[in-house]
Nucleic acid binder design. Sequence first.
RNA 1: GCUGAUGUGGCGGAAUUGGCAGACGCACUGGAUUCAAAAUCCAGCGGGAAACCAUGUGGGUUCGAGUCCCACCAUCAGCACCA
Length: 808
Amino acid sequence: MAYNFTEIEKKWQNKWYSEGTFNAQDDHSKEKWYGLIEFPYPSGQGLHVGHPRSYTALDIIARKKRMQGYNVLYPIGFDAFGLPAENYAIKNHVHPKITTQKNIAHFTEQLKALGFSFDWSRVVDTTDPNYYKWTQWIFIQLYKHGLAYKTTMPINFCTGCKVGLANEEVVNGVCERCGSPVVQKEKSQWMLKITEYAQRLIDDLDDVDFLEKIKIQQKNWIGRSEGAEVKFNIDGTSEELIVYTTRPDTLFGATYMVVAPEHLVMETLKDKITNIDEIKEYQKQASLKSDFERAELNKDKTGVEIKGIKAVNPLTGSLIPIWVSDYVLSTYGTGAIMAVPAHDDRDYAFTKKFNLPMIQVIESNDESCICNIEEEPFTDVATGKLINSGFLTGLSVEDAKKSVIKHLEENNIGTKKINYKLRDWVFSRQRYWGEPIPMIYCEDCGWVTVPETELPLVLPEIEDYEPGENGESALAKHTEWINTKCPHCGKDAKRETDTMPQWAGSSWYFLRYMDPHNNDALASKESLNYWGPVDWYNGGMEHTTLHLLYSRFWHKFLYDIGVVSTKEPYQKRTSHGMILGSNGEKMSKSKGNVINPDDIVKDFGADTFRVYEMFMGPFDQTAPWSMESIRGCGKFLERVWNMQEFLVDGDSYSSKFEKMMHKAIKKVTSDIEEMKFNTSISTFMTMVNEFYKEKQINKAEFKTFIQLLNPFAPHMTEELNEFLGNKETIANTPWPTFEESKTIDDEIELPFQFNGKLKATIIIPLNSDEQSVKDIVHNNETVCGLLEGKTIIKEIYVKNKIYNIVVK
RNA sequence: GCUGAUGUGGCGGAAUUGGCAGACGCACUGGAUUCAAAAUCCAGCGGGAAACCAUGUGGGUUCGAGUCCCACCAUCAGCACCA
């Protein structure tokens, strides 16, 4: 009897989704489990085969948790604001709202065809005013707490299209669409003070269960460093240059200084600078370069000495030159550095190019080190010892740091300082398809928030989505929308025309799932307390820095103002590997290696698709697609289906299969928890092979088998469950349990080694003591043969593992 | 350049974390079934005649190394001078 997956899968999907089989229950007395996947952006291309990898993995875990008795929340939604919909609208004159609705409908259909156990009654759509009402509400709270502010920031500006561009749209310094050069244009933008949370974003990682590489990446991104700020006086003036350094111990070796091209000192002291024209020219060149070009062209260092002024080394009192160079960034530290060429790679390269002086102040403790600073800088902190450094001479690097900071602070020439690479979050977009920022500008009152009672501030439906003049948002053209009254004083005022970035809606969506239809709050206090935090969040590594950090930041803020009750939003975070094309390259239209999930479902069925994606390799690693392998997974499921043919009665496991059943339950239960889905599936395959060998499986064994397999292949197992005469849906049956004692074999095959090389295996009872094994070994024929004429030096027995004889 | 990951049969990958390398699947080969083919079922499948040799390469530790240590090579991903 052939398995008709098309018909059977449809049958169960209709039943599940019409009856709400997987909807989370409102019963807050039960123990909860909240599993989360990153909600998709509903692109016009439809679902990618990469999406189901993550969704199936957590679907398996969610289904198992349900069977284990948890009240499970496994929701789905759509992150639907964003550039592609807007660009499509500009090109084809279809409102983004329409394409978004269409794409969401298509995604929904595709997701349902894969049989995920999502709670479809809680779907969230970030473009729905009932949703973004609360995104706007959070922004207002951030503003009220001083965490949102306006400042001038450069944007990428296309000189052809006259619009602001995302980094992604700038390719090799030119606009992706029209090819015109992209320049940096200063614009007043809304910013969020994520830097205020930098330390807490590091510290609280200790309390959560994220993959170690994810924690490392978050920490590196935040980039905390400890060092000192040091004041250098500029000779003959009352001005000073303040630098940040992580190596204050090398201060005696500072032979010159470098400032960023944007540094103000060149403006302040322009009258004293003798080569001001040359400096101005260098600044001009630097400003023309985009960030991209600076990065590209930085292989070779450039710079100009600022003549006419000199700085004073605060410890040695010697006069040192000041240079300007774009290898120093205005956005990090103070925009000025002290250069210690003997002990820093970049300063060293700059020194070699411009032939500047160098003083060695650290040498190695390690006698064997042939360290010659004429050939390369010495940067090893661990073995370093101070030389040529006055009161620091002889100290280790660590001690010298402490000592010099103490000296700097006592003499008021510097302080200890902690710096972060993390920068504040640029929150404005000059775009139409995003949440309007709920702010009003009044000539008299300044920036005023839209009253909370007037939320949502609905995005007006317009026809012309093209950005306005000078890179303004398309909204800037709609004076009827912009012009309003100041909520404070009632005078004429104007609305903010920038919109929020796509990151906004995705920074809190997991909270909305807890209570998605609430009109009075982003979610009720009660549901937030019950469902929070997310127990397990899986997503791509590409989101471990920005999205993960932004949403942790918002959550911490919401914690501070009493909205949520936990410091961290996600208890556990894992990530999945990418699915590549069958040629081992990233799937892309241009390479012609894209696999369409619809075709796979049509040809093989959803269960085969799911099993294949879980079987293809370790979950957290990239894996290439293979049409041959997926066929094998289909064959496996056919074999499962055909086991009906040799089904016999039986209320308990037969003695032949009892051990196998208990072992399998144990293995699959722990494998799922560890995301080792591929080895679970090979366990299933081995079991099927065993049943085929005996041409027999009894009802008890079959029941357990399909329960274990159900999270992986839910449709076929439901059908088989019905075939077994069970009325209740398998998803509501309790997860099989095992007895530890029945997973252990009484006898084991002990490997026997001779000088560390395997020579035989011997059957012994489990947990045999050394003497009894020794007796068996020495009576073994093979062993006796090997021992002939040899002297035994040593015998090693590791219980249940190995027996090794070393001879001469 | 820096950081992180990976490297095991023809291919995707297992290996209780230092104890029988190659589970399971794909591909391939042979057999059964069939008028025939497909499908299905059964068997074989790292190399070598064998002793033995094999987990990117070269060393090391150990009774014993895919697993630990040192050096190197290759591939992939991310970052871009972070003082």
